[in-house]
């Protein structure tokens, strides 16, 4: 592998990894707060991409506005799902497993609704960036990829700032650590859970627009990347924010390099084998490693 090829692959892997990280963060936020593995997260990603492209068709805005539209609508959709469906189930006091399975139902429902609304054909995303490749040393890198990395990291940093410095963010952290104590401190758990879904939706929406801009938008675009992102979140250690970010980026890089150096057909297998090996060494993911060290 030449140096320039390495850089190109690295940037590509980093870009897709950033997208995985965004989705993985959504999974992590929800699983931390409620214990639910949110199978419909991929469909939130799809909705984000679809809203973004629809907004573009209504009025051709700059890419940033598109991204914001995807994030806002992704967030609203997730809040609506939580308040309309999952909360109802929780109020019925069904076991956690049932809610997890219900999210599979939600995934089926949203995916097929997406197909009804936007059709089965993939929708091309508008070209939004300069097409002249950037030069990094000898390597030539598509601007698209660089922007995905920049924007992805921007969103993740904003999330960290939000969690660390706003009242709501800190309340969410507290509620995730210990729901009982948080409730005693007067934190409204219903609202916090809704916020949690909202933020996961925002992250998912961002991932959707970025993923769409990389390939295309389609009703079934979300499920597979979301499964991979979930694996990435597990890799990092479920429930750990840093773990989700690192896991996503790691997974994107592994996948990209495995495709070149091992085989395209088995690139997904490499990630899975690595996942299983990591879980065998640290049954609670990479975050367990760090916890062990402490």
């Amino acid at each position: 592998m030449s140096g320039s090829q390495f850089i190109e692959l690295f940037v590509g892997g980093l870009a897709i990894g950033c997208i995985y990280s965004l989705i993985a963060l959504g999974f992590t936020m929800i699983i931390r707060a409620t214990g639910v593995l949110h199978f419909a997260q991929g469909e939130v990603v799809m909705l984000g991409a679809m809203f973004g492209v629809t907004a573009h068709h209504l009025l051709p805005l700059p890419f940033i506005a598109l991204l914001v539209a995807g994030m806002v609508f992704g967030g609203l959709a997730a809040v609506a799902i939580e308040l309309g469906v999952y909360r109802t189930l929780r109020l019925r006091r069904v076991p956690l497993m049932n809610i997890i399975i219900a999210t599979v139902g939600m995934s089926i429902l949203l995916q097929n609704t997406g197909q009804l609304v936007w059709g089965s054909e993939p929708i091309a995303y508008p070209k939004l960036f300069a097409t002249n490749a950037y030069s990094i040393g000898p390597a030539r890198v598509a601007p698209q990829l660089v922007w995905i990395i920049v924007l992805g990291i921007l969103v993740m940093v904003s999330l960290q700032l939000f969690l660390a410095f706003t009242r709501t963010g800190r309340a969410m952290q507290a509620a995730a650590q210990s729901p009982e104590t948080a409730q005693l401190m007067g934190i409204n758990l219903t609202r916090i859970t809704a916020y949690t879904y909202g933020i996961s939706g925002v992250l998912g929406g961002a991932a959707g627009v970025l993923l769409g801009s990389l390939f295309y938008a389609s009703f079934s675009m979300g499920f597979l990347p979301a499964m991979k992102a979930f694996v990435a979140a597990t890799l990092g250690g479920l429930g750990s924010i840093g773990g989700a970010m690192a896991g996503g980026i790691l997974f994107g890089l592994i996948e990209t390099f495995a495709a070149i150096s091992i085989s395209t057909s088995y690139k997904d297998a490499v990630g899975m084998i690595l996942l299983i090996l990591i879980l065998l060494a640290w049954p609670e993911g990479l975050a367990g490693l760090i916890r062990q060290r402490r």
Binding site: R92, N98, I101, A102, L110
Partner: peptide
């Protein structure tokens, strides 16, 4: 999908 969710409300 909707029915699946409804079934899960059964406990």
């Amino acid at each position: 999908g909707a029915m699946l969710i409804a079934f899960m409300g059964l406990g």
